[in-house]
Nucleic acid binder design. Structure first.
Lengths: 105, 105
DNA sequence: TGAGTATATGCATATATGGCCAAATATGCA
DNA sequence: TGCATATTTGGCCATATATGCATATACTCA
């Protein structure tokens, strides 16, 4: 288990940041069950379509999803399903913590 | 594979945000090789001691590390080693992407 | 108690992020 | 071409995050 190169850290941070956002976690969770278009995502996260588009762009730049245009829709799908492991880890952390105190809200 | 509860999403996002930061990734990587005190972390990340303390507090609030005072040092250690999986996932994403184009810098 | 060291916290400032609206692009279809 | 629909991008504002300095707090030791 070597120390990680600082240049890599920067890239890794960008990828993690792409996922570390409430709306983007919702998007990842949704895309895990199949591709969908920007308008679906907008409705899903209850935001403007432009906002949905930007979130998807961030995920795309992070390499988490990719996009394919078909007709005048653009369909996004999950390309890095390993990010789902983040959620499992988060769940484990919460469980651990549940035995302490903390804001569950 | 059920959809995730929106209330959980919020908690998960907080945990992921705790790790999604360059200096905090460096810290996690370091703590993975053993506990250390705030002053060591400050030097490690090349920041003010107060900044190191705050980063550690964020990780602690996220349930990623915990702290123990011994004498007048406070030692932090990793309590959620599953976050190391984030790094593996990120590395995989970068590898995938390396075959495309992108800013490697 | 008082001096010295290690951490944590309040405050101010700089930067980043998230969101909407409006306008620009990209397609499809008549 | 011209109009309608879907997506992306620019501009702007509000809020959140990061950081350092100064200061408060915690602890050790004499």
């Amino acid at each position: 288990m070597e120390s990680i190169d600082r240049a890599r850290i920067k890239q890794h941070a960008r990828i993690l940041k792409a996922v570390a956002s409430e709306p983007r976690l919702v998007i990842v969770d949704r895309l895990n069950r199949g591709e969908c278009c920007v308008c679906d995502i907008a409705e899903l996260i209850g935001a403007d379509q432009s906002t949905a588009s930007r979130h998807l762009a961030i995920l795309r730049d992070g390499g988490i999803v990719d996009a394919e245009r078909r007709g005048n829709h653009v369909y996004y799908r999950l390309t890095a399903p390993c990010v789902l492991g983040f959620l499992e880890c988060a769940a484990r952390v919460l469980e651990e913590r549940g035995r302490g105190s903390d804001d569950e809200a």
